[in-house]
């Protein structure tokens, strides 16, 4: 858990309290396209995320300052494996932006973007989404090619490499900005209702101070 990092620079509970903004960004795409490697490259070594293995989910908490405001970001790094399909609704729940990754070496991961995107739009019709062509280090020629999917959907396309680091930091910074502006400009009514309900739930079950418990419970509720 984030709090157990032992002398970490930042106390996250305090940060949650003080933060001006909090956004959730989800990372989607097929198995082995490099979602986790991208997260790790952005946050660099030594960062220890919260791992919810039963849910095939890794939660990275990150804090940054944008225009003088503290922004807390929850990155949800999900698993591509099909047997976690039933988890997807909770991935999408209340997300403010989406990073959708494919592997430039494997066509099927590009073709499957259609499915990921369709599902994303079922749950989050409006949130900003960035399409990411990862592993360009393996074949730089792909950067001269147009991948029509992004264009057709009117989505930005980033050519990146988790291995050599090309455009990784830019990708995540831009994603955070998009998430922020989505949050500020959308008055997502459903979100507010859900938040109300959630507060209500939390009031009822006092004593569960363990963050991971809360998250798990939250997810159970979403699945129910």
């Amino acid at each position: 858990m984030a709090g157990d990092d032992g002398g970490s620079l930042f106390d996250f509970d305090q940060a949650t309290y003080d933060a001006d903004e909090k956004v959730k960004i989800i990372c989607l795409g097929d198995s082995a396209v490099g979602k986790s490697k991208l997260m790790e490259r952005f946050l660099m070594d030594g960062y220890r995320p919260q791992q919810l293995s039963t849910y095939a989910l890794t939660l990275y908490k990150y804090s940054t300052t944008i225009d003088g405001k503290t922004v807390l970001v929850d990155f949800w790094d999900t698993a591509g494996q099909e047997r976690f399909q039933s988890m997807h609704p909770s991935y999408y729940h209340k997300a403010h932006a989406c990073i959708m990754v494919f592997d430039v070496q494997r066509k099927i991961t590009y073709k499957n973007l259609t499915n990921w995107y369709r599902e994303l739009r079922e749950y989050r019709p409006e949130i900003p989404c960035i399409v990411v062509a990862n592993k360009i280090d393996a074949d730089m020629k792909v950067t001269q090619r147009n991948f029509n999917f992004a264009k057709k959907q009117g989505l930005p396309l980033y050519y990146v490499s988790a291995a050599d680091g090309t455009n990784v930091v830019k990708l995540f910074k831009d994603a955070i900005k998009l998430a922020m502006s989505y949050k500020q400009n959308s008055s997502d009514f459903m979100d507010e209702v859900l938040q109300e309900l959630e507060n209500f739930e939390l009031e009822k079950k006092e004593g569960t101070s363990d963050k991971e418990d809360d998250l798990l419970q939250e997810m159970d509720q979403q699945l129910a």
């Binding site: 097929d30 198995s31 591509g80 494996q81 099909e82 070496q105 494997r106 099927i108 499957n112």
Partner: peptide
């Protein structure tokens, strides 16, 4: 290459 194999499965 094995680019058409669905690793999700």
């Amino acid at each position: 290459d094995p680019g058409d194999e669905d690793l999700n499965k």
